[in-house]
Design a protein around this nucleic acid. Sequence first.
DNA 1: CTTGGCACTCCAGTCGTGCGAGTGCCAAGT
DNA 2: ACTTGGCACTCGCACGACTGGAGTGCCAAG
Lengths: 339, 339
Amino acid sequence: MIEDRKLAVLRAIVEDYVATQEPVGSKTLVERHRLGVSPATVRNDMAALEDEGLIAQPHTSAGRIPTDKGYRFFVDRLTTVKAMSAAEKRAIAGFLEGAHDLDDVVQRSVRLLAQLTQQVAIVQYPTLAKSTVRHVELVALSTHRLLAVLILSTGRVEQRVIEVPVELTDDLLGDLRLRVNAAAAGERISEAATALGALPEQVGHDVTPTFTVVVAAVVEAMSNHRSDERVVVGGTANLARFGDNFDQTVKPILEALEEHVVLLKLLGETSSDLVTVRIGAEGPIDQLSATSVVATGYGASDDALSALGVVGPTRMDYPGSMAAVRAVARYVSTILDES
Amino acid sequence: MIEDRKLAVLRAIVEDYVATQEPVGSKTLVERHRLGVSPATVRNDMAALEDEGLIAQPHTSAGRIPTDKGYRFFVDRLTTVKAMSAAEKRAIAGFLEGAHDLDDVVQRSVRLLAQLTQQVAIVQYPTLAKSTVRHVELVALSTHRLLAVLILSTGRVEQRVIEVPVELTDDLLGDLRLRVNAAAAGERISEAATALGALPEQVGHDVTPTFTVVVAAVVEAMSNHRSDERVVVGGTANLARFGDNFDQTVKPILEALEEHVVLLKLLGETSSDLVTVRIGAEGPIDQLSATSVVATGYGASDDALSALGVVGPTRMDYPGSMAAVRAVARYVSTILDES
DNA sequence: CTTGGCACTCCAGTCGTGCGAGTGCCAAGT
DNA sequence: ACTTGGCACTCGCACGACTGGAGTGCCAAG
């Protein structure tokens, strides 16, 4: 039971500090939270918590603030993801309902997430890896160039300009289109790639080079990491919550947020159905060592296609953020499933 | 000649203040710039400049800083856009060369511009308004839904999911595709829209509703403002140059930068071949009253398709920014022309 | 019209000082 | 074995006074 109270104290410290952003002392603690004990008792517990490395004081004779380890403990053991209220659910659904476009869905999700959590939101575009090829369209741009447009089941569209070695005729283009679609349509892109690879061998000798280059471009477009790498960031204005001295705290974060490759690493390690929380220096990115990341996978039906989440100061409302991230991920998944 | 010196003083003040970010006094001024006169003389000139509203002092007994009006004067009369060095030109060309994709071009341009100017860069996607329709592709998604993909000469791709009232057959789809392309391909989108409008009347009574709804969706996709409205922002970390008190200065700017609609207004009023400079409160957006915008149109050949520019503190390096903006706009135009 | 001189202003940084929040420890109480 | 009130102690921080310096405006002389 003494253990229980210690944890209650930790929870209270975290909640208070998150709310006020100020180190919290024993006295204010017992005032605000109804722990049925005196400040002195709380002080003893605090000393113990400090020994365990869960809280720390910025300087002697200041209140305590949670350490990264303390937050970790809080998140792992002291928190249950609270469900969103019916009103919030309606708001989310309503906000995402109007989207008619993949871009639109992603865009709205970012905004929504940023607004709900009052933090920086990141949404990764649905990954190609697990989607199927709906259609491949080839359009002649000039005599030696064509545009390949790849339409995927997730609604994503990839495009490539391809230089071809021979002069393009309508017949050749038609043949190409037919064969490519026959081989690729309906397949998962990994399978489509192999199916396409066999194509050039099946056609007349004269057009083999053309087939080769086109197939290569289409395959490249399929497996292109750049497309997986697309992420959208929003709510950067919420970085204001970080407090002052911009240069040291916020600037590196903004820089990291522009490195989309970096963000993908951040989101990449999330598992599908669980909300992952990475606190402070736990993450792989130095520039974000003062921030926490709450993320989760999302996507149609069973397997996760992609990920979304929020980035904020370690001092953040974890339960709230986790709930919001989870809720948005679910709604986005539903919407993607429908279309 | 006294006028000449006054202007030289103004120029010197602007340059100094931009470089140091500190109010500049008469003494430091004569030291740094070789005006052949004494501080006292400069003081007289400064008093005159202040009367004219071109400079101001934050408080008595501090140096002077330029007012918005002063910057305006500086930009209009005291500055010639300096050409980029050969090395810089090569760097720009090299940076943009690798792009093979419209998205890529835009993305790289933003980065480049942000890096060159050390400020926030904004690039608007090429406008649809003046591009022509390359191809319209219709793909069946299910029995009553199809995906319309609109491929434009700029390389932009628009897509719409359309619900159709009748069951889709391959024949119907083929007919649709044929007719729509015949009407629209090669046309500017305004003309394509009218051409398409006539389509439903030319087909059999039974499929008219289908044609109507598909044509409507395609036309909507063409004229859709959302596509014109796409802008990409980069280099927000450079807002650190603003100095401190984040909340009051930087936060509203970040907020404004996320409102893409707002940014379009900002870019929208730029003329094609000239670099437009909007200083401080001259702009239409309150939140950006402490910033200046340097922008220009860009696009293939004669008519401007779109715009790009940078946003920074009024205290910015105008000649440098103008040069960079102009240079990048030119290179992007060239590249878009090629593809 | 320029220039040196001079009195004046006012910001910014420094140094003390006192207050208050918070702590740790101890002895007494339950 | 815990809890609790008391108490001395520690610092950070806000506040105020002070001062140095940069900068100004004005004036009279060149």
